[in-house]
Design a protein around this nucleic acid. Structure first.
Lengths: 122, 122, 122, 122
DNA sequence: GTGGTCTAGACCACC
DNA sequence: GTGGTCTAGACCACG
């Protein structure tokens, strides 16, 4: 697993970790029941406080993406392929809906948006 | 001009104001050199502190969207229609690029994304 | 007499007027005992409030640059050529001393300053 | 780092802080990435409100002289020696040009100005 | 009336 | 500990 922290100050470190791990679970890089690095180890690797890593893992556990086995460590939750797919689609729908609404609110219409998307695809 | 604050506390009040005014400038609801409500008036209307409104206006001024004439008030910066259009497109390109990159990173491919966009259009 | 107001918000309007009239007295454009435009007239010309002009004239009177003859108007104070020259030099010494000190404080030495002055003269 | 506030109220406190820190960055007293005193500490030292210090730091951040790492503190931006030199020269050129233009406008000619500068140098 | 500045508190998230 | 945000007052200069 590879986690890269940006210096970007907009997103707290613990949330960056949350996002990267969620991402790796969703894209299949982290498999069901795979073990995550220990809090201590990840803190060492990223040169951050153990508390920050703990906060990130707690958040992921709260959201059901990982689970803790006391005195064993943290593990990726069990997801079937269809569950993963469904989560992905739910996220995508939300993201796309929000962004289209936002772009419309600043004065772009459907055609403008489609044009930009098509240009991007090249 | 109509500004609505959400109770959601994820986004600071002053940033919500910034976003709403930026949006209204970009979608043409606020015209060049149009005067904005005075700090005190807006604070009264929204039932928030004058300082919070000041912070919002300062942020907008920093970004070049409005300008202050002391003892006169705050005013929308002068933008030509083509400038507005360019800003809109720049924002849209960034937003869309980030969105597509993110969706790809969690395992969706172009076809998935297009499918969802097309469904939304209906 | 020609007064031009800048939109620059850093300097209050009444001070801009003060500066421009002082300048014209010092450079000889306004002669001793010459009459100034009436408060009302200048306010009309500059499209500003009479109060603002009044503040400017009061400031100039306080500094001894002009004097008021009630129900007649405002007039440039009587200065001999040597008095004018002395005021000019006093101002120049202050201005130059302050600026050299400032430039030194941000790390420029005499040679740097002289070099820039000499380049400007070309 | 040493910051001295004058009692003079012509310049707002927060701007005095801005000027002193800019000066120390430009003259090399504050090095790239060096940490600045925390908002609270500086407020205590100078016996002013934390908000006033925050305003000063915000202004410096806006101008690119410092950057904030939330929960860490404020730090001097990274400047190469040549960047510093360039900023210094740009400032000097502006200052000197304005000064010379002003002195000319009140009736001094080049020789007068040079004479005063040379006297100062002694 | 306007904006510009400042005070003296406060709570929060983050590390 | 740090910065980020906010409140509810205040005084000033300006127009």
């Amino acid at each position: 697993m590879k986690i890269v922290l940006s210096n970007c100050k907009d997103i707290p470190i613990y949330l960056q970790i949350v996002q990267e791990i969620k991402r790796d679970i969703l894209n299949g890089e982290l498999k069901s029941d795979e073990s995550l690095p220990s809090i201590r180890q990840l803190a060492l690797d990223l040169k951050i406080s153990v508390i920050t890593v703990k906060n990130a893992y707690d958040e992921l556990e709260k959201d059901g993406f990982i689970y803790a086995l006391p005195s064993k460590g943290f593990f990726v939750s069990s997801f079937s392929e269809s569950q993963i797919k469904k989560i992905r689609e739910t996220i995508a729908k939300n993201v796309i809906e929000n962004q289209i609404n936002y772009l419309k609110s600043i004065g772009l219409d459907k055609e403008d948006i489609l044009k930009i998307i098509n240009e991007k695809k090249n």
